[in-house]
Nucleic acid binder design. Structure first.
Lengths: 346, 346
DNA sequence: CTTCATACTGGAAGCGCTTGCAGTGAGATG
DNA sequence: CATCTCACTGCAAGCGCTTCCAGTATGAAG
């Protein structure tokens, strides 16, 4: 492995100058820089991250903490983060927090404290007070994504608004009996997300003079299987089945679509289904959804954490509280309910 | 941030002894070790990875390179690796290689050369000679998974055998017109995998005195959507449609299942479908598959790379060439073909 | 021509650990 | 009792960079 001294010797300068030429910090004459760059390239010199980190305190590495690689949303956000970071020359260290409490504990008390990262992006995790203390005690920028926490800066979509929009869409189509596939509170994941969506769901109904029918509201675990199971119980009702269902994730919505088929129900004829996320498979299933652009969220989070780290100027705080964008994408899984359901004659 | 010297002072020993007590290298009396451990814990001391790496040459960090986080197989393997590594106190740096040739080039020529990792696991990637040179030039253990390469040690399933087993299953059920959803060669991914499965497919047919019908063999991109599209073209044939289809991934098989439904075909009545992988959603779809246990593959790869790095004994080479295990899992997507197809009267 | 500011460069002091080496003391051996 | 062995410990030299500081040269300003 070639060291900075070899480059310095070959270029006829000091190692200090090589360091400055390569990092862009400090003054180096154009000619010298040119020469150093060329020599470094010829020799295949790449700075040792350990030595550089130790001397400078910078690691050029970002940590990403998330609760479950298997959910589409997380792997998509991670992809977005990863692409942006590699474009900017940063490495990515993954902290995949499992349901094992001891592993989780270990991540907070040991892994993160090795000073391996310059910044941390925490995706959709519910953190307790101790954990937040540990994160703030790290002395590095921490950004949350999709799980807002008053003590930590971060971005999230307006979960209330997202659910509200989904329900609104169904109401506008004329639905009045609307089911809901929500989510259970989970040890690892942010339980505020389902709670806020729940409120959006209820408020939208309330504004239309309706109230949520407890029997049409079930919970699942954000997965296709969970959504399938939950939908079966709601849609399989012999009496007063809903004419539409809103699922709090696209994966659950897809599960609901499959459940409807299994039950011999036509979508959207017998029942409309709307999800939240913007899943890749949405087009294939014709799924109407509220797209929250997870890939873009990841890229944006990456850009913002780098801004926090490298930013010469102060953070654009005016922009800092802006909610992330989301859009209703109408496909073929929603339509007006069959005429007999629209208004019950009295 | 507390340093090793502070721990040393508080414990009344030298920093050398603290280092030895915490790392377990060298001799430390039980009493001293006890004391150091206790003090370190009280002070919340965690070793600085940069300083430790620079001094020792070890990083306690493993790199994982894979071509696409979105495919179920990769995120599952990654989960398996991640769990095992965190259990062993290792960090994980992710190299998510995109289709962008420049990004890929950059990963090989810069990112990997920062000496940030003690070992590298390369999952299902096709590497050219230059890239392999660059990997071997890293001076660290490199392990491939699911994309065997003669110049790099690694594990893979017997792809020929896997496809052979899938076809065998269909043949045993009495199928004779068997379609195939294979995969296109891709810039990033290992194109030997589809090629070997193709051979397994053909050989199994040949052993039954059959040959592959070109018109029933299509390719896709390993995704649900791709499988859906491909299956539509094969199953939608007005004449001589296959009675069974083998897909080279479960995601494509699921796509095929959906396509069959869209076409009004019953599975397995009108057409049997079998996949390869062991996808989480297999049970939900009743998908018959050849399970290759990706989670276990990840864990095993992690264990092996650590063995390569820390291993006191030589690698158990007798075991080194063993293929990874796989199993036929029969569910409800395969059955005997309808009687009229079994043997055409002449 | 002198004075100053400024661009550029090199020397050298760390960054916070690990580990080779040497020293100490205690138990084992003859 | 002398000698040896060996577990234990501390000292100090790095690991390969970054960056402060000081020194030189150059051009501008007075």
């Amino acid at each position: 492995m070639v060291s900075i001294d070899e480059v310095a010797r070959a270029a006829g300068v000091s190692s200090a100058t090589v360091s400055r030429a390569l990092s862009g910090r400090g003054h180096v004459s154009p000619a010298t820089r040119q020469k150093v760059l060329q020599v470094a390239d010829e020799l295949g010199y790449v700075v040792s991250s350990a030595a550089s980190s130790l001397a400078s305190g910078r690691t050029r590495n970002i940590g990403v903490m998330l609760p479950d690689l298997h959910r589409w949303f997380f792997s998509t956000v991670l992809t977005g983060i990863s692409e942006e970071l590699s474009r900017r020359g940063y490495d990515l260290t993954l902290y995949n927090v499992t349901d094992d409490a001891q592993v989780r504990q270990e991540i907070f008390s040991s892994f993160l404290r090795r000073r391996r990262v310059d910044g941390l992006i925490v995706v959709a995790m519910e953190l307790d007070a101790d954990e937040i203390d540990q994160l703030t005690g790290l002395g590095i920028p921490v950004l949350t994504l999709g799980g807002s926490n008053p003590r930590l800066p971060g971005r999230a979509i307006d979960d209330h608004g997202v659910a509200h929009l989904a329900v609104e869409h169904l109401l506008r189509l004329g639905h009045r009996r609307i089911g809901r596939i929500g989510a259970e509170a989970s040890f690892n994941r942010d339980f505020h997300v389902p709670a806020r969506r729940e409120n959006g769901f209820r408020d939208a109904l309330a504004e239309a003079g309706l109230s949520a029918d407890r029997q049409l509201c079930v919970t699942a675990d954000f997965t296709v299987e969970g959504g399938h199971r939950a939908a079966k119980s709601v849609l399989g009702r012999s009496t007063s089945a809903p004419t539409a269902v809103v699922a709090f994730s696209d994966e659950m919505a897809i599960g609901a679509l499959l459940a409807a088929r299994d039950l011999g129900l036509e979508v959207p004829g017998d029942v409309s289904v709307i999800g939240i996320d913007g899943h890749d498979l949405g087009p294939l299933f014709g799924l109407t959804t509220v797209d929250q652009h997870p890939l873009g969220q990841g890229g944006r989070a990456a850009r913002e954490i780098l801004e926090l780290i490298e930013g010469t100027e102060a953070l654009p705080t005016d922009d800092a509280d802006a909610d992330l964008p989301y859009d209703l994408v109408v496909r073929s899984s929603t339509s007006a309910p069959r005429i007999e359901s629209v208004s019950a004659p009295h």
